[in-house]
């Protein structure tokens, strides 16, 4: 017992500080998380606009780079009601399972006559089908107009946002515009990414 041995000590770092920071970051990311949706991939152009896209009561008409048009509404009950409305208008009846499946889709791009077969597929198959896009033409009375009408009937507070891909051609946009204008919708939001305003720009 006379010898004094240096006590063996496992190297021990104090991790409290690190843990604090880690959980602070974790909390931040959880709070700000809005998940990426796996809808059609669209890279929007950017603008210096500062207006945020509203979170609720919004319908999004997307145009992908091939010019295909997709349509989506944010709230699930509205989606089901919208399907009901369009079914009534076109004389198609949808079953409850079809409605339930439809209300899970954030956006879709099918002509009406192909919608039912798609909704009857299994959950695994549905995302794998290539969506042909909603028919749009310059007359302003195509299926897109019917969908917009059905959606607005389901929720009359819906705002309209257009989300176009960088590479989508202007004529498609023009056709979409014609469909909206034919229903007297003259004001809408264009969804863009944010961009730094050039030097010297002042926001009055």
């Amino acid at each position: 017992m006379g010898k004094v041995r240096p006590k063996k000590h496992a190297p021990h770092t104090d991790m409290t500080a690190m843990t604090d920071v880690a959980f602070l970051l974790l909390t931040f990311f959880i709070m700000t998380a809005t998940f990426k949706s796996n809808e059609a991939e669209i890279t929007t152009p950017s603008s210096i606009s500062q207006i945020k896209v509203p979170d609720d009561h919004i319908m999004v008409i997307s145009i992908d780079k091939a010019g295909k048009v997709f349509f989506g509404v944010d709230a699930k009950p509205v989606r089901a009601a919208m399907l009901d409305n369009i079914g009534q208008a076109k004389g198609i009846t949808f079953t409850d399972t079809e409605k339930a499946k439809f209300s899970l889709q954030t956006s879709f791009g099918f002509p009406l006559n192909q919608l039912k077969p798609w909704l009857n597929m299994s959950k695994e198959q549905m995302p794998q089908v290539k969506q042909p896009g909603i028919p749009v033409d310059s007359t302003g009375a195509s299926e897109l107009a019917d969908w917009v009408y059905a959606a607005r009937k389901a929720d009359n507070q819906l705002r309209i946002a257009l989300k176009g891909d960088n590479l989508s051609k202007f004529p498609v946009f023009k056709d979409v515009l014609a469909n909206l204008q034919s229903q007297n919708i003259n004001k809408f939001n264009l969804i863009t990414g944010s961009e730094q305003a050039p030097a010297g720009y002042t926001n009055e």
Binding site: T32, T34, F35, K36, I51, A161, S182, N189, I191, T192
Partner: peptide, 28 residues
């Protein structure tokens, strides 16, 4: 903690899209 941080960092879209309003003249 770090596992979760990594997950949330990868799963979030940070830049919230902005929008510009466009008003077109009435056609009807």
């Amino acid at each position: 903690g770090f596992l979760l941080i990594t997950f949330f960092m990868l799963a979030t879209t940070m830049s919230k899209p902005t929008s510009m309003t466009l008003a077109v003249p009435d056609k009807t």
